[in-house]
Computed example of a mutant assay.
Amino acid sequence: MSQFELTRTLPEDATGAALRADVLHGLTRTPKILPPKWFYDARGSELFEEITRLDEYYPTRAEREILIARAPMIAAATRASTLVELGSGSSDKTRHLLDALPGLHSYVPVDVSGSALTGAAEALLGERPDLRIHALIADFTAGLVLPDTPGPRLVVFLGGTVGNLLPDERSAFLTSVRALLAPGDALLLGTDLVKDEAVLVRAYDDEAGVTAEFNKNVLSVINRELGADFDPADFGHVALWNAEQEWIEMRLRARRALTAKIPELDLVVHFAAGEEVRTEVSAKFRQDGVRSELAAAGMELTHWWTDEANRFALSLATAV
């Protein structure tokens, strides 16, 4: 029999409260910042899907190449009965792992969007009627309690999304993942790799301007949810490589001096001409660095796979 269960661990207004807190904190500090998670309303998700199909944006293709080639090895190394996916979204790439795990009992997708979880589950159950799906509406960066499903468990975090976390946030996140792992469980982590600056910048500043629209979508989200009056046309899209930190930064740069009102926060935000808001950090990694960060969180890197062009990596780690 097919089985689908949806559990909410986030309060109903958790998303709205988090948005208000992030915008108030981020736009009243210097320099201004906004977290990248607020790109992803329905329109933002559509734009990101479009980005993944762009010639310039290689990470999605590279990661899928690894999954297709290495899924049988991942399955053999983990023998997972439960697959837990953090930030599951449409669960599209996960299908390669689901196909490779013959003894899989349960799939636990975790996302903040209930509609995304339900839509993905319906599609998966149409293909795999015996799969048990226990979906969690949860923020995986704020502590997570997993349902009682059989082990071994394979926790996966794909897409290079771990690079959107700052180093301290990444350390806390990996430590929280380690706390989820029992003996015999494993973590599969996707990381984009350090490479030529021009290749990296093009991936975040495509000729068609899709990433620019995606970047500016955060302003549309704030307008809709908080009654703000930002005009996205007042801001330019900036993508640059920070060589010292080895990460890409996306920013919005004010084209002129301007003022924006955010009634829901009783806030007026002033921008000087040329002033920037950092909207995303996307760290790029080296194998030794990934190994060290996993070790600091109490995990051991046991397998490392890259695509043929060595652009992206999947690493498998176990608890120590």
Rank of each mutant, 00 (worst) to 15 (best):
D185F: 05
V194H: 13
G160T: 13
L158D: 05
G190W: 02
E169F: 11
A172G: 13
V199L: 15
L131Y: 06
G163Q: 09
D130Q: 14
K195A: 08
L193Q: 02
V194R: 08
L174R: 03
A138T: 00
D148H: 09
P167G: 09
L181W: 05
T175Q: 15
L158H: 01
T161D: 10
L174D: 01
A142S: 14
A142E: 14
G160N: 14
F157V: 00
L131H: 04
A179I: 01
T141L: 06
G163P: 13
G160S: 14
G163Y: 06
V155E: 05
A138C: 00
P150R: 01
L136P: 11
T175K: 15
G143A: 06
V177T: 01
L193N: 05
L200H: 07
I133N: 00
R128G: 09
G159Q: 10
V156G: 03
V156D: 02
G159L: 06
V156W: 11
R128D: 13
T161F: 08
L166Y: 12
G184P: 08
L165W: 03
L158W: 08
F173H: 14
P152M: 01
D185P: 12
T149Y: 10
H134S: 08
D185S: 04
N164K: 10
N164A: 13
I137Q: 15
L131E: 01
S176M: 03
D196C: 04
D139N: 15
K195M: 08
V177N: 01
D139F: 07
A186W: 06
A172W: 13
G151W: 02
G190F: 03
G159S: 11
F140V: 11
G143S: 07
R178Q: 15
L174W: 02
P150I: 02
P147G: 04
G160F: 05
L189S: 10
F173A: 08
E127M: 13
H134G: 04
L187N: 05
E169V: 04
R128Y: 15
T149A: 11
L146W: 03
R170L: 03
L144H: 05
A172I: 10
D139T: 07
P167F: 11
D192R: 00
A138Q: 02
L154K: 06
R153Y: 03
G159D: 13
R170C: 13
A135H: 07
L189C: 12
G160K: 03
L166D: 15
P129I: 02
L188S: 09
N164H: 12
G190V: 04
A142M: 10
V155A: 02
V162N: 14
V156N: 03
R178D: 10
D168M: 12
G190I: 04
R170Q: 14
K195D: 10
I133K: 02
R178M: 11
L180I: 00
P167D: 07
A138F: 00
L158V: 07
